[in-house]
Computed example of a mutant assay.
Amino acid sequence: MPELYDTAAPRKATNLSVNSDLLTKTRALNINLSATLEKALKEELGKRRASQWTEDNQAAIKSYNEFVEQHGCFGDEFREF
């Protein structure tokens, strides 16, 4: 499966606004803000891309499901369960 983004791209500084209490408590626990944000963004990007793929392929999915309803799945005759 291809990566969601170029993991070798250079890092870029950015400014964010974060709840001050949340920031204080995460810093007190030595939570790496950059790594945590990157992980959260990667997860969100993956969810959004999956959702977009489903939306983009809705017609094909519907067509396939209709075909399976009418004809069954390929290889059904070979299944032993």
Rank of each mutant, 00 (worst) to 15 (best):
A28T: 00
G75I: 00
A40W: 04
S20P: 03
N19S: 08
A60L: 04
S17E: 11
T26Y: 04
R49N: 10
K39E: 15
A59G: 00
K62E: 04
K62A: 08
N32I: 02
V68L: 05
L22E: 05
E66Q: 14
Q52A: 08
A59P: 00
A35S: 00
K25T: 05
S63M: 00
F67V: 07
R49M: 11
E3Q: 15
S20D: 09
E80N: 02
D76H: 03
T54L: 12
N65C: 10
A13D: 12
L37F: 02
G75N: 01
L16Q: 00
E44A: 14
N15L: 11
E69K: 14
R48E: 04
A35Y: 04
G46R: 06
A40M: 02
N15W: 07
N30Y: 12
K25F: 08
V68T: 05
K47W: 08
A50Q: 11
F74M: 13
H71E: 07
K62N: 09
P10Q: 06
F78L: 10
Q58N: 10
E66M: 12
A8D: 15
Q70K: 14
G75Y: 05
N30E: 15
N65A: 14
Q70P: 00
E55F: 13
F78Y: 12
L22R: 07
T14M: 08
I61E: 04
F78H: 10
D76Q: 09
N65T: 11
E43S: 14
E80Y: 09
E66A: 14
V18G: 01
C73G: 12
E43Q: 14
M1D: 06
Q52G: 00
N30H: 15
N32A: 05
D6W: 03
A40S: 05
N32G: 00
L22W: 10
S17N: 12
H71T: 06
D6Y: 03
T54S: 07
G72T: 01
A28F: 00
R79C: 10
N32S: 00
P10V: 09
S20T: 07
A35C: 06
T36P: 06
T24I: 13
T7D: 12
L37A: 03
F78R: 03
N32D: 03
A28G: 01
D21S: 14
D21Y: 13
Y64C: 11
A40C: 06
A13C: 12
R79H: 06
E38M: 01
N30P: 04
T54Q: 13
T14P: 06
L45Y: 03
G46M: 08
L37N: 02
I31V: 02
D6I: 05
F67Q: 11
D21T: 15
T26G: 04
K42P: 11
